[in-house]
Structure formats: structure tokens, C-alpha cells
Design a protein around this nucleic acid. Structure first.
Lengths: 257, 257
DNA sequence: CGTTCAAAAGTCATCATACAACAATCCAAT
DNA sequence: ATTGGATTGTTGTATGATGACTTTTGAACG
């Protein structure tokens, strides 16, 4: 035995219960079943998913372990009040204003900084591999001059995931979707986001983070992430000003002559 | 709305799988089975614990969900290379629900640390006064031997408010309601929370934070807040362990003699 | 002797069924 | 109208069987 060649490849076939977990997770996140309400019974889920009750139960156990649902014997399985729901409602009303977006980005900054520190300490081999994978994916896309947004997001998610605290991931999902400036597809952002310089800069900062995490240095990881997101914040602010100036000119142009 | 009374009281009867999870966790923590090695087969565990294979599988699924073990079809269930650190040992000692609370507390930690740093930079005079006010209120209540919980909360809220980013406050409200250990009304917490030593310790830590903020030193404020909440986390963890020991004894007493 | 390959044994993954424990509901008797 | 028990729905646990995958064994072959 010994060198069993851990084989970091992550292609293993998904267990049935995992697919069920993913499906139910999606439904919960989409708000198809509201907090406090009851899930379909195990029997019903058995039918809808076409798997045995064993698999359903395993999936529910996993969801319960993450605190998403709470089974009560004799009554049913209920959706717990969850952070994301609160923030979902909270974040719903703030897509409009950019100053708000900046504030949210700032909260995300707090979460991600700590996230990086924890990841440096707690990551396991597979999680570290996932982070590196996202990093190299970014690199590859950059060389191909393809949009790097998804890889950037994957990088951050991998780090959040490496904290082994599911709430960090959830938090990032909720905050990120609204505040991540990297993958917004707006007319004024494309030319900036797609510039090579910009993306090279991002990747440089990513590298520092990655190194700190692989080195297991929490303090350095936090600092690197702080620098990265601080810079992002700054870039976003500049872009905002540029946009405002643009609009101001438009208005002036439209009014003046 | 609602206040459906999440009711952190933990009086529910433990499921069989949970006792099995606890037992195996203990063994793992004690190092009776080393990382990389194989656990007894499901059949063997069935015999040693005197429960059905269903229960064993559910327990293993839970352990796998926490990343402590990794089942490989056809081969066996193996102990994962430990995510070094406290976390493994930490997660090893507690039931699912408690770990959820701790995870939320951890997110709150991230938010509050950054919050302190921003408060140190951005606070205005009135906000600084509000923080001090909460601090002295705590002091006063302490001398009067009155419950200090509200003042503690006010202190943290004042800091969040001093960031001038309303989302930090909302964040704290949402997270705090779930994870603040100060105001839980459980039999085992009262004597601890109300002890003068405990509260004196809190206040000492508060003072360090306050000084850093008034000095405008963001770095120091963050460090102080990190120390404060880290200590809180530690205290919470200890209380959980005490509680579990309590339950273990109850069970032993009820069963043994 | 060393290598290769197929069969066999061991083990987890899933399925199907049944019963026990508990909770919510309904209904009759008071 | 209230109480109390019976009924039903749901989760918790037990049991047995089958499929899929991994490891080991051992024989055949060079």
C-alpha cells in the first residue's frame, strides 16, 4: 500500500444522494420552498427523484448537517430560517444604486478576507487543488483572450469552500452575485475588464493569495486578500466616476445643444 | 415577523446515528484510528454498536459531510488527512446544530473584525461617543450586578454603525440574533455568563478595542476585535463541551445505575 | 522466476419492505 | 365546549438482497 497515489483528479462519479442534495439545494436557494415550510415527504421525494428512500434520507441528512433543513420525527422535514433568505430579501432591494453596491462590496471584503485566512489554515489537499485549478484556468483563459470572469469567481468560491464553513460560501454567493464587478456585462465595463493589463493585475494579486494559502500563512493570506479586494474596490470606484462623468456629459450634450 | 422561537434549548432526544457519530468522532480525535487508515467495515460497526446498518451508514454520511472520513466504494471508509488544526478537533466534539451556530459565529467574526477597522478610520465624533457610551453603560451595569447583555450588544452595534456602512449593522443584526451566545437563556450558561470574572474579561477586551478605535488605528482595532471574538468563540466552545459532558453523564447515569 | 490476467472475495451503494416511534388531526363521548 | 382516545401521516430503525467497484488471490504463461 503506502504511496497509494491519492490521485487528485476530481472526476469521480457523483453519488446519487449528491445529485439529490444539489437539486434540493437549488430549489431552496431559488426560494421554491420558503423557510419554515415543510418539504415533500420522503415518500414523495422518492417518487419525484426516482431513487430509493435510502438515497433520499442520506441527502436529507446532508442538508440537515449543513443546517438547511431540520427533520422532526412524525411531523416532516422543515426548511430552517437561513441567512441567505434574510440576505436574499435584503439584497433584493439594493441592486439599483451603485453606492449601495459599493457598501455591499465592502461587506464582501470583510467576509473574504477572513475566508482567506481560514482557508490557509483549514484547507485539505482537494480544496487546495481546486483553488490552484481555478487559478490556472484563469491563466489559460487569459492566454486565449477569453473572458476570465467565471474563473475569477471560481477562484474566490474555492477559497470560501476551503474554510470548511458552508456559510462562507453561501455568503459569498449572496453578496457576490450583486457586487462582483468582474463579470458584470455592462457596456462601460467590458472594455476595461477585458483589457489585458487589468486581468494581468488581477492574476498577480491572485498569485499572492494562492501562495499564502498554500504556505498555510493565515496572516499573509488575509493581507493579500485585503490588498486584492481593496484594489478591486478602488477600480470599481474609478469606473463609477468615469461612468458618472460620461452621463454628466451626455446630459450636458443633450441639454446644451 | 414570526419569532418562531428557534429555541436553542437542546432537549431533544439524540438520534441513534448521532450517538454513533459522537463515538466515532471521539475515537478519531483520540487518534485510535490514524489518518489514511481504514475504519471497520459497516458490518463490523453494526455489531460493535448494536445498531442497524442504516444507522451506521447515516453516521458515516454525516462524518463524510464534515470531511472527517472519505468512503471509497468497494474499498472501505478511510480517515481523511486531517485538515490540520483546531477545526477538526473542534468539530469533533459537537453535534451538528452546535456546529452550525459556531459557523455563523465565525461569519460574524469576519464582519465584526473589518467593522472595527473601518470604525477606527471613519467614525465621527458622535459615533465615537456612542461607542464610549455603550462601554460605560456596560461598566455601570457590571457594578450594579445587572445583566450586561444588552450593553454588550449595543457596544458592537455602535461599532458597526460607526463604519458608516448601514449593511454592517444589518449584517450584525441578522448574524447576532442567531449566534450571540450572551443572551441565550440556558441553565448552563447563566452561571457562566453572569459570573463577574467572565464579564470583567469581556470588558477588558472591549477596552482594548475602544482604545484602538479612538486612536484611529485600524490595524490595532482589527486585532483587538479578532482577539475578543476569538476568545468568545473559545468560551462558547468550552461551554458546548461542558454541556456535552453533562449530557453524557446523564445518559450514563440513566443507563448504568 | 517474474509477469499477466482472470476469477474470487470483500466492501460500499442502492433498492425494497416492514415495523416502531412520534406528531397532528379528527371524532365521539362526556 | 372540552376531553380523551383512535386514526392517519411521517420520520426513525431494522433487515435482507442485489449491483458495482476494489483489492487480493492464484493460476497460466513467457
Amino acid at each position: 500500500m503506502s504511496d497509494a497515489a491519492p490521485d487528485l483528479r476530481v472526476e469521480r462519479k457523483p453519488k446519487l444522494s449528491e445529485t439529490v442534495v444539489a437539486a434540493i439545494r437549488r430549489q431552496l436557494q431559488a426560494g421554491e420552498i420558503l423557510p419554515g415550510h415543510k418539504l415533500p415527504t420522503e415518500g414523495q421525494l422518492t417518487e419525484t427523484f426516482g431513487v430509493s428512500r435510502t438515497v433520499i434520507r442520506e441527502a436529507l441528512a446532508k442538508l440537515a448537517a449543513d443546517g438547511l433543513v431540520e427533520p422532526r420525527q412524525g411531523a416532516g422535514v422543515f426548511v430552517t430560517e437561513h441567512i441567505s433568505t434574510v440576505f436574499g430579501a435584503l439584497a433584493a432591494d439594493m441592486g439599483a444604486k451603485d453606492s449601495v453596491a459599493l457598501n455591499v462590496l465592502e461587506v464582501r471584503l470583510a467576509v473574504e478576507i477572513e475566508s482567506a485566512g481560514l482557508a490557509a489554515i483549514r484547507r485539505n489537499a482537494a480544496q487546495e487543488a481546486a483553488i490552484q485549478e481555478a487559478f490556472f484556468e484563469f491563466e489559460r483563459l487569459l492566454l486565449d483572450s477569453q473572458p476570465t470572469g467565471p474563473a475569477d469567481l471560481a477562484f474566490h468560491r474555492a477559497i470560501a469552500s476551503a474554510t470548511n464553513n458552508p456559510f462562507y460560501v453561501e455568503m459569498l454567493d449572496v453578496l457576490g452575485r450583486r457586487a462582483i464587478p468582474c463579470d458584470v456585462t455592462s457596456p462601460w465595463s467590458t472594455e476595461l475588464v477585458q483589457s489585458d493589463d487589468y486581468q494581468r493585475g488581477l492574476q498577480r494579486e491572485h498569485l499572492v493569495i494562492l501562495n499564502a494559502i498554500t504556505a498555510g500563512d493565515a496572516e499573509a493570506a488575509r493581507e493579500a486578500m485585503r490588498a486584492h479586494l481593496g484594489a478591486s474596490q478602488q477600480r470599481y470606484r474609478e469606473r463609477l466616476q468615469a461612468r458618472q462623468a460620461y452621463y454628466a456629459n451626455s446630459v450636458k450634450a443633450a441639454a446644451g445643444e
